[in-house]
């Protein structure tokens, strides 16, 4: 699969609602930048109330199968997210570090990332090498996150795939509490009973979430291209509202972008850092290898 001139690494991003795996091939001696690195396999496996360890194994084995490689072919298995308990790991990278690197890979012009996961969101500002310069996270409240949106979709009888396009058809978005997910859910129940359309409810929700996320980005002093990553990076309704919210807040221009592999950004970033560390450790003569 790999030539002697390349190095194969895996990134496993263990989230609270899904496990994401990316297997990345990059050229040896390509430093932190690793130009030309390519994703050779990608897997997203929803947890669906299963044992997290089993989900990790399933996602990882599936990715290996797609890549046509064995564990022993991997130079480094890097985990991120809640992956500290994955026994096979060679090393673990913190979520911000991995998402910053993954966002830079997906868009080399990006200088910030907003990772919107199931239970929290975080804005990270980084430099042209992927080094984290500043970050802000949501606190305890889940009002700006995927689990909240998933709950609302369930109340409305809408699938997650339908949420974005439906929201974009809303013409009169209803204002929703942006502070507390519990209050917002109560708002939504009242809206349904008042006959507000699902499209306007969802656009109101997206507007509320986008305002929270834009404030996070401003607090992290983000400017320029912002990559949206995590589970909600595919939500077109959220993306369009985030662009509007960022413009409304003022300050430097924020160019909100998303990539089809945005959900995999953490896993991609971890795999790329794993490749860099493999070579660094080899140069130091330190014997750390992926556990077969």
């Amino acid at each position: 699969m790999t030539s002697k001139a390349t190095i194969l690494t895996a990134g496993i991003d263990v989230g609270s609602s899904a496990v994401k795996v990316a297997i990345v091939e990059s050229e040896k001696g390509s430093g932190r930048e690793r130009p030309g690195a390519k994703i050779v396999a990608r897997t997203v496996e929803r947890n669906r109330r299963r044992d997290p360890g089993q989900v990790v194994t399933l996602a990882f084995e599936t990715a290996l199968e797609h890549a046509g490689v064995k564990r022993g072919d991997l130079a480094y298995i890097a985990t991120t997210g809640e992956g500290e308990s994955v026994e096979e790991r060679t090393g673990h990278f913190y979520g911000m570090t991995a998402h910053a690197r993954g966002a830079l890979y997906l868009d080399p012009s990006a200088r910030a990332v907003i990772d919107v996961g199931a239970l929290h969101a975080r804005a990270v500002r980084f430099d042209e090498r992927g080094r984290v310069l500043d970050y802000r996270m949501t606190s305890q409240c889940a009002s700006g996150t995927g689990q909240f949106l998933e709950n609302i979709a369930r109340y409305l009888g809408v699938t997650l795939d339908e949420v974005g396009p439906l929201s974009q058809t809303g013409q009169n978005p209803e204002k929703v509490s942006g502070i507390c997910a519990v209050l917002a859910e109560t708002d939504v129940i009242n809206m349904v009973s008042r006959g507000i359309s699902a499209a306007n409810i969802l656009r109101g929700i997206h507007d509320s979430m986008a305002t929270t996320l834009a404030k996070l980005l401003r607090s992290a002093r983000a400017v320029g291209v912002v990559q949206v990553t995590g589970g909600l990076s595919a939500d077109t309704g959220l993306l369009s509202e985030l662009a509007l919210a960022a413009a409304k807040l003022g300050g430097g221009k924020l160019d909100v972008q998303a990539h089809p592999d945005g959900v995999l950004a953490g896993a991609i970033g971890a795999a790329l850092w794993g490749a860099f560390r493999t070579e660094r450790l080899q140069s130091l003569g330190v014997g750390v290898t992926a556990t077969a």
Partner: peptide, 17 residues
């Protein structure tokens, strides 16, 4: 955990080790 994790990352990725 966050503090220790980011500290470990900064050493491994941006230090001399």
């Amino acid at each position: 955990r966050e503090q220790a994790g980011t500290f470990a990352d900064s050493i491994r990725l941006w230090g001399e080790a």
